[in-house]
């Protein structure tokens, strides 16, 4: 069984995995990081989005072995202690979540989107979240949250 060495949320981890093990399986099942969710099997819903080397990717569409040597950040690694990341705080303030299932992927996508776009418009946000499905919110408050979170991240 291949061994993968990763830095996950700042901590070095090592695990033996089958080649077919997806990064999301490694995170959820072997590392106990169940904040990253699986909402589909066709790589479309975005509930599993994490950052690999600073970029948002779908952890369900990346083999654990492919990520060997990478730095992975999951939703569990976003806040600093009890202090929420500005994007998390914005989701709370703007009621950008209901059932919470899409939320980790949504927040991770939003953080990466905001990092790469200095002046997000509503249209940018709507298009930028194309890869994240939410069934609860109609996206209205998610869009408000991301706009506010992006602004807060610049401060």
């Amino acid at each position: 069984m291949p061994t993968v060495n990763l830095t996950v949320n700042g901590k070095a981890v090592s695990a033996n995995v089958e080649a077919r093990t997806l990064l999301v399986n490694l995170l959820r099942e072997q590392l106990g990081l169940t904040g990253t969710h699986v909402g589909c099997d066709t790589s479309q819903c975005g509930a599993c989005v994490v950052h690999v080397d600073g970029k948002s990717v779908k952890a369900c569409t990346l083999l654990a072995v492919q990520a060997n040597g990478s730095k992975v950040t999951t939703i569990e690694g976003l806040a600093s202690g009890d202090k929420l990341h500005p994007m998390q705080e914005a989701f709370r303030e703007h009621h950008g979540l209901q059932c919470g299932f899409c939320t980790p992927g949504m927040v991770m996508s939003a953080v990466c989107l905001a990092q790469n776009h200095p002046n997000l418009t509503e249209k940018d946000v709507r298009e930028g979240l194309e890869g994240n499905l939410c069934r609860c919110t109609g996206y209205h408050n998610i869009v408000q949250a991301v706009l506010a979170g992006a602004q807060a991240m610049r401060r």
């Binding site: 939703i75 569990e76 976003l78 929420l84 998390q88 989701f91 709370r92 979540l97 919470g100 299932f101």
Partner: peptide, 9 residues
Amino acid sequence: DYRFLTGQG
């Protein structure tokens, strides 16, 4: 929200 936003749901 705190638990959902931090992956602790």
